[in-house]
């Protein structure tokens, strides 16, 4: 089983440390008032970096067969399509739906 990647303590603790720093950062940026819509963009950007760290180094995608990464990225692509096509409808309704 020598072909399997075994993560070093350095990698695992390093990634966890980076995740903690980014968690602090995402809370800290709310203390300075970043104007709309940039505050949402910053929050999502930090979350994407954190998710990428978990997926690459904790879930081993970095060392795995690249096919697993393609499968995961396709899920995200289909989620983006889901969001985009729904927003094309809901953002351009004349008066919204007052009951909701």
């Amino acid at each position: 089983m020598s072909s399997h990647h075994i993560s070093s303590h350095f990698t695992l603790f390093g990634v966890a440390g980076a995740l903690l720093v980014l968690t602090f950062l995402t809370v800290a940026v709310t203390w300075i008032n970043i104007p709309e819509p940039y505050n949402v963009i910053v929050a999502i950007a930090i979350a994407i970096v954190k998710a990428a760290l978990v997926a690459m180094f904790f879930m081993n995608l970095y060392w795995d067969s690249k096919f697993n990464s393609i499968v995961f990225l396709l899920a995200i692509l289909f989620f983006v399509i889901f969001v985009s096509i729904t927003l094309l409808d809901t953002l351009f309704r004349d008066a919204g739906l007052p009951i909701y």
Binding site: T26, V27, I44, A47, A51
Partner: peptide, 9 residues
């Protein structure tokens, strides 16, 4: 990781 900033922050 996504729920935390989207709901709390």
């Amino acid at each position: 990781i996504f729920l935390f900033p989207l709901l709390y922050l």
